[in-house]
Amino acid sequence: MILYLGIMLTSQVFDTTGSPALVSVPNDSDGNEVYTYNFPFTTRAQWKARLPKETLPLPSPVPYVVIHHSYTPAACYYSEECCQSMRSMQNFHMNDRGWWDIGYHFAVGSDGTAYEGRGWGILGAHALHFNNVSVGICLIGDWTNAVPPVRQLKTAQALIAAGVDRGYIKSDYKLVGHRQVRQTECPGDALFKEIQNWKHYSPFPASVDDLPEVIQLGK
């Protein structure tokens, strides 16, 4: 594996076998600290993100991870295609929804790459009334009738593990689907069924009706 150390702007790095290598990316919120990921990772600069209108800090570590699907744009299988999907989602969220930035903290493509959205430590706009206790990860595509490719699922899980390692997500975090905290069909029936097999999946809250109890209990 190839490992780049030091402060640098990076692109996706692959070894000569085509497997993802360790990727080092600068963490803007922490000054000079550099994070190393063992999965393909694309920064905001690399997918040509617009600057956010504003940002607010997200209290860390958060107790929840919320899984989404994009529905549209559809699944993307190549870097250029996925970067375009990120720009499309950001434009929709900022221009049509009037949000400060793309709503998700991260998105994951069917190419097995994690794409930086708002990033760690920034308040998201992905789950109304639940944003200040969660990190939102979107699996790009419509996962109503089909489960995402294995590499997409594995990168999403590795991304969560990285968040735990870096102190942004609690080690005993609870994983939920978007539909459990908002009136929506997201993250699609097939993906929602899939994440119920993940280690940290929690059936509570079961619906938006449970949110007052979540807040009251501080869960």
Rank of each mutant, 00 (worst) to 15 (best):
I2T: 12
Y4C: 09
L5Q: 13
L5P: 00
G6C: 05
G6Y: 05
I7E: 13
I7Y: 13
L9N: 13
L9R: 14
S11C: 05
Q12Y: 01
V13R: 04
D15N: 15
T17A: 05
P20C: 01
A21P: 03
A21E: 05
V23F: 00
V23W: 03
S24I: 01
P26E: 13
G31V: 04
G31R: 11
E33W: 10
E33Y: 11
Y37T: 12
T42M: 11
R44D: 02
A45L: 12
A45G: 05
Q46T: 11
K48F: 08
A49W: 02
A49V: 10
A49N: 09
K53I: 13
L56A: 14
P57K: 12
L58C: 09
P61M: 04
V62F: 00
V62L: 04
I67V: 15
H68T: 04
H69V: 00
H69K: 13
H69N: 15
S70I: 04
S70N: 07
E80H: 07
E80M: 05
E81A: 08
C83Q: 15
Q84Y: 01
R87K: 14
R87W: 10
R87I: 07
S88A: 12
S88D: 10
Q90Y: 04
Q90V: 04
F92Q: 14
F92V: 09
H93Y: 13
M94G: 06
M94R: 15
N95W: 00
D96S: 14
G98P: 07
G98D: 03
G103I: 00
H105N: 14
A107N: 13
A107G: 06
G109S: 05
G109L: 11
S110C: 14
D111C: 09
D111A: 05
D111Q: 09
G112W: 07
G112V: 12
T113I: 12
Y115S: 09
E116T: 11
E116Q: 15
R118D: 03
R118L: 11
G121E: 13
G121P: 01
L123H: 01
L123K: 12
H126A: 14
H126C: 07
A127T: 07
F130S: 09
N131Q: 11
N131K: 08
S134P: 14
L139T: 04
W143K: 04
T144R: 14
T144M: 10
A146P: 00
V147E: 12
V150G: 05
R151S: 02
Q152F: 03
L153T: 12
T155Y: 02
A156R: 03
Q157G: 06
A158W: 08
I160P: 01
I160G: 02
A161N: 12
G163Y: 09
D165V: 00
R166S: 05
Y173A: 04
V176N: 11
V176G: 06
V176D: 03
G177H: 01
H178V: 01
H178E: 08
R179V: 07
R179I: 02
Q180R: 02
C186R: 06
P187Q: 03
G188W: 00
F192C: 00
K193H: 06
Q196K: 15
N197T: 15
K199T: 14
K199S: 14
H200F: 09
H200L: 01
P203I: 10
F204W: 12
F204N: 09
F204H: 06
V208D: 02
V208E: 14
D209M: 10
D209V: 01
D210C: 04
E213K: 15
V214K: 06
V214P: 02
G218F: 02
